[in-house]
Amino acid sequence: MRRAIDRRERVLLFYLVVLFGFGLGISGAAAHSRLVKSDPSARAVLDKAPKELKLWFNEGVEPAFAKVWIVPAQGAQIPLTSQGDSSDPRLLKVALPDNLPAGPVNIGYHMLSVDGHTVDDKLTFTVKAP
């Protein structure tokens, strides 16, 4: 009986070592939530520069930790100010600068959603030259 128990324990231990090896091989990945729609929409081509960018997510967002910025073709990122919307927890409103140049506008954002996960993504729209 004793020997049988020992053997079973060894089998179990082996099983665990194999499983744990499998576990170590798994690497962490960034959480990813989604932008449902935006105004202007991603990849829109606009006749004139918009004053505001609205981002709607698939989950409620926490405006206190929202970061939105413009990635210019050259130079440092330009941070933008954003605020939530009391009537729609999934909406984030971003004020855009007045002097938005013609051409593609690359927007980056980092968002904390209500389930505690963060979202990092980008979108681009284009302002036509006058």
Partner: peptide, 29 residues
């Protein structure tokens, strides 16, 4: 000995579950 082994496995389960909680569920992946 078996209870100890069970405890180790249980702790591993909690660690794996905590790692899962920090990931997006498949719907978003």
């Amino acid at each position: 000995n078996r209870v100890k082994l069970e405890t180790v496995v249980a702790v591993l389960i909690v660690i794996v579950a905590s790692d899962m909680a920090s990931l997006a569920p498949p719907e978003h992946e």
